[in-house]
Design a protein around this nucleic acid. Structure first.
Lengths: 340, 340
DNA sequence: ATCGGATGTGGGAGCGTTCCCACCGCTCAC
DNA sequence: GTGAGCGGTGGGAACGCTCCCACATCCGAT
């Protein structure tokens, strides 16, 4: 049906039909001030009859804004759709943008060969701002984007010296919480399975571990430190190494839940009781933490709140690009379950 | 630095700098035919010096195309980021669109209250076409979109009588494969744990089950039919019901892998050997199928291919919106592992 | 010489908006 | 009665691009 889709009506046509000028019609559409009730009604009727929809391109051309914000995720589909962290943060972002009357546009920065296309898309005035999610090392994407005058907010810094606005979890504080808890529980030899040193989440959680030990008057014992890659298997391997080297270990703080799961697995295989003989604490409070055996004590972070915070920061930057805004650190808290 | 971000250069400025006309500059940018080497060089230099980037809105305003395609996923973040199916299909779509020089824009149709905003976005000439992913029942979204003259392709029909172009897995054929396999293995009492009757994936897989039994000269025995909701727990419950009612059951075809996992769990608890006493076959070939105990025999479908196919269909529709294009059914094949 | 056809080129028109200014008709104060 | 002020209105200009037509140039064929 309707084989010939007549061209979309323009504002001019709406105005003509309503018997008013183009200006008045425009005013009605844009929350019009100073329009008589009579004119407003006529325009609204005309819009309904014609099925008029404004052309966003024409509008953006003159207003220089699109009311859309891009969320760029620089990870493989596998990771994005694997970690529940992303679901949470996207929910937060979507909700906050919706409240602000803006549309969320999600872009995956998959293969690096496609990076060019992404760049173009962002640069060509399709969106008013960019949220960037990537826990990766030295990505020049944020700088490239900003070079084009687009506001950017990064979620989870890639390295310590980010120049742009960012929102991140306070990793140092969170790790400190976890370790202080283990100290409180009277644990004597508190080990850690740290994350990669070249990721902020890795290095700063280790930093928090060291700080909390220092606060308790202890020192970091290299024999009690192992590193993993945030994967479960690496956690298991690290735990084996720790047990070999230091059988007397009675607690371990893992830089994320997945590695904690691996540690739990190794401990089970080694016949060590958790938490009686060895206490285990994770970081993230991912859903798996709850269903682990035993349920995992872990540092809770809220991806949803992180998303909201990113949006808030971006909106501020958009209204006043000049102000130097500091990054935002989100607090964490400890969820004590049965593994400690 | 650069506190006053001078306005973006326009095409006119590029042309002036290169000492050519606006038309020539435009020609260079758009894969220009009929441009002298000299002019091309001058324009390219000017572009580089000025850091010129075309304004997509201005371009779209006159060309009436944006070279962007939206992928709308009408599911909760939880589901989207839970099922690996989505990761696969998005990879396929992204790759295919990239090959076609188009940008993928992902939109989540989360809370229904936000549906209005989504509608607007799609309608206002931001994208040239829409891919819709939703396995839900009676969604009017596709029709609304099409009413605005936007080409749409739906992935996985919601119901039998879809009017739009769609791409779906051939569920009937796949289920038939699975059941025929069980018949071949000499199974006598082949049960099924079907999906919801109001989803195509549910009803047509059941249909395939019935057809394969008929082909083997058997009839559907209502006592061997249970229904689940595609969740693991529902599969476990259904299996319990089957065992209670018909202890002699020696095979079960599950409408998806997750329910098969649940069934496996129940069988283990009931002390039944798989596959010796009871054979289990799933549908989907999700990653979990491989890591199940025992590894699950299942019907393989390729979400990635489905994504590519959706894009192909959409591109065709975009070049010729008139032609009535039939939906596309993708074939499946059986992956035999240790559970049958 | 003259012409016809490539090959390049410049720039006007127009895409559908918003912005803004000029202007209209009233009312109210003086 | 005059003028200031206000609610309301119409439409020109501009946003930055592509399209297309007119035109200028140069070549080889007649």
């Amino acid at each position: 049906m309707n084989r010939t889709p007549r061209p979309r009506p323009t504002l001019e046509e709406v105005a003509a039909r309503a018997g008013v000028g183009r200006g008045t019609a425009s005013r009605v559409i844009n929350g019009g001030e100073k329009v008589s009730e009579r004119a407003r009604q006529a325009v609204e009727d005309a819009i309904a009859e014609l099925g008029y929809v404004p052309n966003a391109n024409a509008r953006a051309l003159v207003t220089r804004r699109t009311d859309a914000v891009a969320l760029v995720i620089a990870e493989s589909e596998e990771r994005v759709f694997g970690e529940p962290f992303f679901a949470g943060i996207i929910r937060g972002i979507g909700a906050a943008l919706g409240d602000a009357g803006r549309q969320l546009v999600l872009l995956l920065a998959q293969a690096s060969e496609r990076r060019g296309a992404l760049d173009e898309y962002l640069t060509r005035q399709h969106v008013d701002g960019v949220l960037l999610l990537s826990l990766h090392d030295d990505d020049e994407l944020p700088d490239r984007i900003r070079a084009h005058g687009l506001p950017v907010v990064v979620g989870g810094r890639a390295n310590e010296n980010v120049t742009s606005g960012f929102v991140d979890v306070d990793n140092v504080q969170g790790a400190g919480l976890a370790v202080a808890h283990l100290v409180d529980r009277g644990r004597a030899r508190i080990a850690t399975i740290a994350g990669p040193a070249d990721m902020v989440a890795g290095s700063s959680r280790f930093q928090g571990y060291a700080a909390a030990l220092a606060a308790a008057g202890r020192e970091v014992d290299e024999r009690l430190v192992e590193r993993g890659d945030f994967g479960q298997e690496s956690g298991a391997a690290a735990m084996r190494a720790l047990l070999d080297r230091e059988p007397a270990v009675d607690a371990v703080f893992c830089a994320n839940d997945l590695m904690a799961l691996g540690a739990l697995q190794t401990l089970r295989e080694a016949g060590r009781q958790v938490p009686e003989e060895v206490a285990v604490v994770g970081f993230e409070d991912a859903p798996v933490a709850l269903s682990a055996h035993p349920p995992l004590t872990t540092v809770h972070q809220s991806p949803e709140q992180m998303g909201r915070e990113m949006v808030a920061l971006l909106l501020e930057t958009m209204t006043d690009p000049e102000a130097d805004r500091p990054g935002r650190m989100l607090p964490t808290y400890l969820v004590v379950r049965d593994s400690s």
